[in-house]
Design a protein around this nucleic acid. Structure first.
Length: 591
DNA sequence: CCCCCCCC
């Protein structure tokens, strides 16, 4: 019969022997869904014809699921295959089988319209597929040979192509798609691009100690994480570089712990002493995906939820010094550096970098910085972004967005007065609005989650002397009241420790009036000290000597006038909710 | 074999 649909006769033989063929047209003679465990990994296996031959190992990859639709492709449909790769898969111990992986295709004629098998194609046998090519081109059927002496092909300082030193080059091998990797196959070579490389991290716990780093790998079929421990860290850390393409073989596969990775793969890999990694020097690796960025304009971050990971690009408007401090909970020494990023939305946000990244970051001269996978955080009502271990940061990256931002900033952007999303609604003097006590009441302030902030010109009408001071935990930054054990020791329940000493703290309750009314307010130690003109320690020692002196001290506060920045917030105590007002800052009145 | 992602 006439092949009126112009199938690409002979294409399968060429392709399955490793040759090139542009956009072949094929007919689907059968299709079935392969149950691979999880719904998002479902694949289709097809019986495919080019009019002359058929193969039964044609696979539709996961990402084409949407193009195929829930019902699959009807039999007799004619398709054009826009992108494909071939691969060798270990077929459950029955030997290697060559498969055709379809990466991109389109339907040309529906199966219903075609209605029949075209031509009389015959099965393309493994014998034909596997026969040695006469020209010795890149159609080798074997996967990587082990490196000599089981030694991985490590980077060599003297040779660009390390394979030249031990004869186990993986270049030119038929490679396997990342999506085909599983713990049940160990003979494979992938060709993948490194999208991200972590810093080297050490750990020490009850099961031992060591160091590790990991990389995120991608090819046309999917992505996977590869982690190196101990010796492999030394061997490969410097060799592997972000954005480069490598042949990789002989890693150990195991189920991925989804809790700690957002890569789309059910498995992850670990390097072994046999692992081979060689940079791929082929001139055109453009088919292997590059990092994709989904940049969020900074102004849009205002409406996003804390905790999400986002891609941000901005110009460093200014940068702070490296800061070192102790983590309160773990006691670990932390290093951080903050930079303010701004973009064309004329909005800025603070970026926090940690550890080695903070130490090495040079934010001078206003570089453009991009962060893929920055974590959005919230503090004091302001939004911030922070790098986490999975984040990818680049300075002055060679991408169009970078040049656009550079141009914008250098042509006026730097002079614009950007809104900073990181501004805290709490104590910053600019963001607090003037209100009277009656306005606060009339407008029903205090219902917001984080409370509402305002400032008043207030006069202290009465400062209570009762419970003005207490004995607090001597630990810096812990102001918890201690329990006097009556044996010379003081116990802090928060620190779960006993101390031979304590520090005095003040916690004042006072009635404050303004022109519109009055309000009971709490005030913490630092501000009470300003009001009284005495340190908490001095108050404590004075009262130790003479308990009667307490009222003399508080009386001195009465009728003093200050600018008071206040927070009003609904608090629940013993099932009872009521509005509580705290004066977080007192300032002398600037006439 | 890690799996923390921190502070004001």
């Amino acid at each position: 019969m006439v092949n009126q649909y112009n199938l690409s006769e002979g294409a399968l033989q060429t392709i399955m022997k490793g040759g090139e063929y542009t956009a072949p047209i094929m007919q689907v003679l059968g299709i079935k869904k392969i149950n691979s465990g999880s719904a998002d990994k479902e694949r289709y296996r097809m019986l495919l014809s080019d009019g002359k031959n058929t193969i039964s190992f044609a696979m539709l990859t996961t990402q084409l699921k949407d193009a195929v639709g829930s019902g699959g492709i009807p039999i007799f449909t004619i398709i054009k295959i826009n992108r494909f790769i071939t691969s060798v898969i270990n077929n459950s111990g029955k030997g290697d089988t060559r498969v055709l992986l379809i990466l991109d295709m389109q339907i040309l004629v529906s199966g219903e319209e075609v209605g029949e098998k075209i031509g009389s194609p015959t099965t393309l046998s493994d014998a034909v597929i596997n026969e040695q090519p006469s020209n010795g081109s890149n159609t080798s059927t074997s996967v990587a040979k082990p490196a000599q002496n089981g030694v991985a092909v490590a980077p060599s300082s003297s040779t660009a192509n390390s394979s030249s030193t031990n004869g186990a080059s993986l270049a030119g091998q038929l490679t396997h798609p990342i999506s085909s990797l599983s713990p049940y196959h160990n003979k494979w070579v992938i060709k993948a691009r490194v999208l991200n490389k972590s810093a080297i991290r050490t750990w020490s716990n009850s099961r031992g100690e060591g160091k590790l780093f990991s990389v995120d790998l991608v090819d046309e079929s999917g992505e996977i994480r590869l982690t190196a421990f101990r010796d492999q860290v030394d061997k490969f850390y410097d060799y592997i570089q972000i954005d480069k393409v490598y042949y990789i073989s002989k890693c150990q596969l195991k189920p991925a712990n989804k809790q700690f990775s957002n890569l789309k793969n059910d498995y992850e890999m670990t390097m072994t002493p046999d692992t081979i990694i060689q940079e791929c020097f082929e001139s055109d690796n453009s088919a292997i995906p590059q990092t994709k960025y989904d940049f969020v304009n900074i102004d849009k971050i205002a409406n996003m939820e804390p905790g999400v990971l986002i891609d941000v690009i901005g110009v460093v408007k200014n940068v702070g010094d490296l800061q070192t401090f102790q983590a309160k909970t773990t006691g670990r020494e932390l290093k951080k550096k903050e930079a303010v990023l701004v973009d064309q939305s004329n909005t800025a946000i603070n970026l926090t970098l940690w550890g080695a990244e903070a130490e090495s970051f040079d934010g001078t001269n206003h570089p453009v910085v991009l962060i893929k996978g920055a974590r959005l955080t919230e503090f004091g009502g302001g939004k911030n972004i922070s790098t986490v271990s999975s984040s990818l940061m680049k300075t002055n990256p060679d991408i169009p967005e970078c040049y656009r931002l550079r141009h914008w900033y250098d042509n006026g952007g730097s002079h614009s007065d950007a809104t900073n999303l990181s501004a805290r609604s709490g104590s910053g003097s600019l963001s607090t609005t003037w209100m009277s006590f009656s306005e606060v009441q009339d407008q029903g302030l205090g219902k917001a989650e984080r409370g509402d902030y305002y400032q008043v010109m207030g006069t202290i009408l009465l400062m209570r002397s009762e419970n003005l001071m207490y004995k607090a935990c001597p630990t810096e930054d812990c102001n918890k009241k201690v329990i006097d054990l009556e044996n010379g020791m003081y116990r802090c329940e928060k620190c779960n420790r006993e101390f031979p000493n304590f520090k005095y703290r003040l916690l004042a309750s006072m009635n404050v009036g303004d022109w519109s009314g009055n309000q009971w307010i709490s005030m913490f130690s630092s501000e009470v000290e300003k009001v009284l003109g005495m340190t908490a320690q001095a108050v404590g020692e004075t009262v130790e000597q003479d308990p009667e002196a307490l009222t003399t001290i508080t009386d001195k506060a009465n009728f003093k006038q200050f600018v008071m920045k206040c927070r009003v917030k609904m608090e629940t105590y013993n099932d009872e909710s009521r509005l509580k007002t705290v004066c977080i800052k007192v300032e002398d009145i600037n006439y």
